[in-house]
Design a binder for these strands. Structure first.
Lengths: 239, 239
DNA sequence: TACGAAACGTCAATGGTGTTGGCATAAGGT
DNA sequence: ACCTTATGCCAACACCATTGACGTTTCGTA
């Protein structure tokens, strides 16, 4: 074991760096988030992070066991942001929908960071709080336990999966991303009706739709299906 | 431009390596797939690939412009494998379900490779063929164009998103992966009923379910919801 | 059959990366 | 005021992708 990482709460002695910056776990994570935004998902390096903080790269290993540990901390921060400000209203479908959209949005606000963390499980406090809330909504709506777990699992994994997928495309280098977006116009819209009748028939709709996230539509379908399986379908109906 | 990459078809003169291996694009891609399986998703390096092929690392730049170009070629191979052997039967729900499961399975057969490629769009022939088939099924089932595109978009993105998410967890280093899998037992199953009543109530179910993919359940919910929105709901009902 | 061009494998070097052991020093508790 | 030690810094290691120069092999052509 090279250097023991001292837990943030046990930290007492704060010595400023050469440049006068006083480090902290929170400052490092927030700086890392900023660097991810500015330099892309491959642009977070220990050396560059140290430079941005005015500290030697090796100093960061006093705060995080490695770069993987740092990315987990970043993910924890994103989850925390997703959960703040969300409250239960009593309409389980609307509440779940709102929570899903919030998580999705929180990740997409930092696509480069989301790419690194969306598929990792932290087991930390914010994640647990979200899980407890989701299960509470479903069980409160009358789902039997087995069914509640099934819906919960589909809901949370679908949300994280879409967050990762949509983040990945937002996090591509600018030129690659626009090339991907123009693919529908440049490739699909030009296919012959003879060889690809269905694509040709709906090409304008594809061009218009495919660059938006399918998550809201998929989420609504999941919730609608869950509501139908549940005797008590909660609130306002679906009109 | 350092070295021009000669297209595979234009290749004429094949000189064996020091170790007697005759290189080819296909051999390199298949070797890369094997190395990804053996050394994990971060274990594909030009040096190691060269070593495995008995060739100097720099030689590979005669075949691929860079490591990104190589990963795209790997993705193309995976998509091709997903589509082979699938045929339309006439039951659009069953056909879509089968296709989704096939794509998901093809990626999960090479999780380390899937992580690198699942969120990239190729626009190549196999991808286009799949899109044409999906749209054909939906329009043939009676969905109006606008609705067909909506369902198509949700279906394909959800499938790729789950493929990427599930692949990511399979592709973790062995010890990290088992640690994640044991998280439900070690963390969630130990939460107090006082502070986390819902998690505590369903803990055994969570432990049993959370390590399987939620994709089949989510897929069924999506298809069920789509069928309900479609006047002609195709086949057997929902049992 | 001999030649010349170029395909292509190899070597060596560049500038990047995460990570670590040793060292000096400043900050607290006492 | 002292002593412990947390913590920042330095130098180094082993690895990475990529490239430019070089030599050798292979082929089309004469």
């Amino acid at each position: 074991m090279p250097k023991p990482v001292v837990s943030e709460s046990a930290r007492r002695r704060r010595r400023p760096t050469k440049n006068g910056v006083v480090l902290s776990e929170d400052l490092i994570v927030r700086t890392a988030l900023r660097m991810l935004r500015e330099h892309g998902s491959a642009g977070l390096t220990v050396r560059r992070l140290g430079l941005a903080l005015g500290a030697d790269p090796s100093t960061l290993y006093r705060y995080f066991a490695g770069i993987d540990d740092l990315t987990l901390a970043i993910g924890d921060l994103l989850i925390g942001r997703a959960m703040t400000g969300w409250h239960v209203t009593g309409d389980w479908q609307a509440d779940l929908r709102e929570l899903g959209l919030r998580i999705h949005a929180a990740y997409l606000e930092h696509p480069q960071a989301a790419v690194l963390t969306a598929s990792r499980i932290s087991g930390k406090s914010h994640e647990i709080a979200a899980d407890e809330a989701i299960l509470g909504l479903l069980r409160g709506a009358g789902f039997p336990d087995r069914e509640a777990v099934r819906v919960y699992h589909a809901f949370i994994d679908m949300t994280l999966a879409f967050a990762a997928l949509d983040a990945a495309s937002l996090a591509l280098p600018e030129e690659t991303r626009t090339a991907d977006e123009e693919m529908w116009q440049a490739t699909y819209a030009r296919l012959s009706p003879g060889t690809h009748p269905n694509i040709a028939a709906v090409a304008p709709l594809l061009v218009a739709d495919m660059n938006d996230s399918a998550y809201p539509a998929a989420l609504d379908m999941l919730l609608a299906s869950a509501a139908r399986d549940c005797g008590d379908n909660g609130a306002t109906g679906h009109g």
